[in-house]
């Protein structure tokens, strides 16, 4: 489903060039769980954000459903992120001025939220176990609950792809397990492809795909077709 071809990414840090990715080529099959592993600075988050069109590669191409992301103009990239991709971040990244329900609906605020979307958002929050917390603000929710809200936000658009960057990085083990359990259930239910960046290999199952990076290059790729 996702084809990464010879992608490179160079960051400019002052006068120094940082080669975050160096000619990475890989494949992420659809409707499966894929993990990107590697030490800090290996380029895993950079690759994840390139998949989500949050950034553009310095070289190479990424194809999602056979369409190159580099051919998208700004509006198409916004639409791609709004309709096709759901993000789950390490530090939850909820908007503190909005309650749980509004955070789930945040992608649609500029376009206007329909009653149907609102119902779906409420249903999603119930599915992730937050039916009783929909009017609570992020500051009134625990870390695990905030991450569930983020998962519900990512799922509302029925995305093709969920990209999660260290989703359990700030959670205790038990809550981390609950979040992964939630992610797996929901992705199975919504037939979504999930790509997760993590240091923690405890949540990987045998059937999951693994891409291991080191110094911006692929060190190991295990793809279970």
């Amino acid at each position: 489903m996702i084809e990464v071809r010879d992608v490179a990414k160079i960051h400019q840090s002052g006068e120094t060039e940082v080669h975050a990715l160096q000619g990475v080529s890989c494949h992420f099959p659809g409707q499966r769980f894929s993990f990107i592993l590697g030490p800090s600075g290996s380029g895993k988050s950079t690759l994840l954000y390139l998949l989500g069109a949050l950034d553009v590669p310095s070289a190479g191409e990424i194809f999602v459903q056979n369409r190159s992301l580099s051919t998208l103009n700004n509006n198409e990239r916004d639409t791609y992120r709004r309709e096709k991709v759901g993000f789950v971040f390490q530090n939850f990244n909820l908007l503190k001025n909005l309650n749980a329900l509004e955070n789930v609906l945040a992608p649609y605020l500029p376009l206007g939220v329909s009653t149907e979307q609102k119902k779906q958002a409420e249903e999603l929050l119930k599915q992730v176990g937050l039916g009783h917390r929909i009017t609570h603000r992020p500051s009134q929710l625990s870390g695990g609950e905030q991450q569930r809200v983020a998962i519900a936000r990512a799922l509302l658009k029925r995305p093709l792809l969920i990209l999660a960057d260290e989703p359990t990085g700030e959670l205790d083990t038990k809550t981390g397990e609950e979040i992964f359990h939630c992610l797996r259930d929901m992705s199975e239910q919504y037939k979504t492809t999930v790509v997760i960046v993590t240091h923690d290999e405890r949540y990987i199952r045998e059937t999951d795909n693994i891409l291991r990076l080191r110094d911006g290059k692929i060190a190991e790729e295990i793809v279970d077709q």
């Binding site: 700004n74 916004d78 993000f87 990244n93 945040a106």
Partner: peptide, 20 residues
């Protein structure tokens, strides 16, 4: 700034952020 990054990651365009 982070909030605007989150909004953009969720599909808000630059125009939407400017409007806000």
């Amino acid at each position: 700034i982070v909030d605007f990054g989150i909004l953009k990651a969720n599909g808000w365009s630059n125009r939407d952020v400017m409007l806000l």
